[in-house]
Structure formats: C-alpha cells, structure tokens
Amino acid sequence: MNRKKIQILSIPYLIWIIGFTLIPLVFVVSKALVTPDDRLTADNLTAIFDSVHRKALITSLEVAFISSLICILISYPAALIIRSFRIKNRKAMIFVMILPMWMNFILRILAIQMLLSKNGIINHLLSILGLGQIEIINTTFAIILGTVYDYLPYMLLPVLNCVLAIPDDIVEASKDLGANRYTVLTRILLPLSLSGIGSGITMVFVPSMTEFVIANILGGGKILLLGNIIEQEFSVTMNWNLGSGLSVALMIFVLVSTLLFGRDSGADRGYVI
C-alpha cells in the first residue's frame, strides 16, 4: 500500500482523537489555568495539596496500589497454572476468567453491593449461622474489593499473554542447567514476565487512580477518592475551574507514576492487553 492510502486509513481515528481527546484536553487545561472570572492562576493546580484533596489523593493512591498488588497476586499464579495446562484446556480456563468482563462494570459493582450491604447476602448468611454482622460496605476495603473485581481481567490478560509466550525450551534449558522450581521462577519466568506485569499495572493502576463510581456505590459517599471530589466540583459545586485543575494535577501525577512503574511496560513489545 502506498503512503497516501495509509494516510486515508488514519482519518477515522484522527477525527476521533481530535474530537474526543485533544479538544477536551485543551478545554480542561485552559479551564484549569484560570479563575472563574478568567484571571490566570496556578491555584487550581496546587489545590491538590489542600488537606482534604491531599487526603483523597492518598486514599486514591492506596486503593490503586493495593488493588494492583492484589490483581498481580491473583493473576500471576493463575497464569502459571494455565501455562501448565495443555493448550486445548487453556482456552476454557481463560474463558472462565474473563467471563465477568462480559457484564457491564456498574452491574458488577451493584452485585458486589448486594453481597456486602448491611442487610446483604453475606450478612444474612452470617446471621443464619449466628455469627453476627460485619461491616464491610462503605469501607476502603469494599472499594478495593470492587476495584479488584472490576479490573482483574485487565491484569490477567497481559500477564497471561506474556507468561504463555515464554517458550518451554527456555524453562527446560534452565532446569537442565540445574535450576530448581524456585530458581526457574525467580530467574527465568518472573524476569521474562515483567513486560506483561508492567502493562497490567498500567491498565489497573491508572484507571483505579481516577475511579469514582466504585467509591460512590461501595463507599456510600463516606470515603472520598480524588475522582469523587473532581466529580463533585463539576456536578455539585459547579466549580469547573477547580475540577479541571485537580484533573490536570491528577493527570500529571498518573503520568509520572506510570513513567516510574512502566518504563519497561509491554506497550513497546506489543502487549497492549
């Protein structure tokens, strides 16, 4: 195909990215840098360090970090198990694991809410057994649980991709050279899976940093993530400038943390998912 035809192929995406990414981004950044009466200011950006915002940022970080960690701790062993299966059995396992992705994510969170709520299924079962009730709903733990539930496939798929791509003969070669299971894991499998784990982190950590719906439903408005505050600035307080400022600050924060985390992420090796 010649150059011109390739350029034509790029038009739909170009329209998309200009209309739905670039223009909104310019809009948000321009709002972020001015006061409501249009005077230039950096206050909207630095507002992220105010005590309420800082606290929300730290909670967001905590949720994103712990959720990513749990996702890795579930996905990596699962990927190793699937790797040990014969190829025809692998497909069924992968299918089961990504099945939840077929449901709308808000539905999934509402289902978790049903499970965890004060008069929900878990507490109901506990009271039948005479064990009394537990308070899970409206805690950070509930939000983390929901986040893990929602984002697990996004960790599992890139990790699985990467783990399954490691050739068997590499593993055999290491055993041949005297490596036991532990050494095979730490010196061969893990290092060769880092790109998958890297892109998994990007796909779990970044969206859960900016999460607010899960916090609304499972946090009951008692636990504020930075996403919740930004949402409120736009829809309740109607201070779009502050909302934009916090958004841009969060964007910068996410950008920096991805650069730190994901320098060797899979994106450059073709592992997008």
Partner: peptide
C-alpha cells in the same frame, strides 16, 4: 533434569 550430570544443547539454542 536439574539433578542429572548431563547438559543439553537445544535445537533452538534456548
């Protein structure tokens, strides 16, 4: 294999 006194050179270098 890791306990045997043999080493292998694989077809695909590995």
């Amino acid at each position: 294999p890791n306990k045997r006194q043999v080493n292998t050179v694989f077809q695909k270098y590995s």
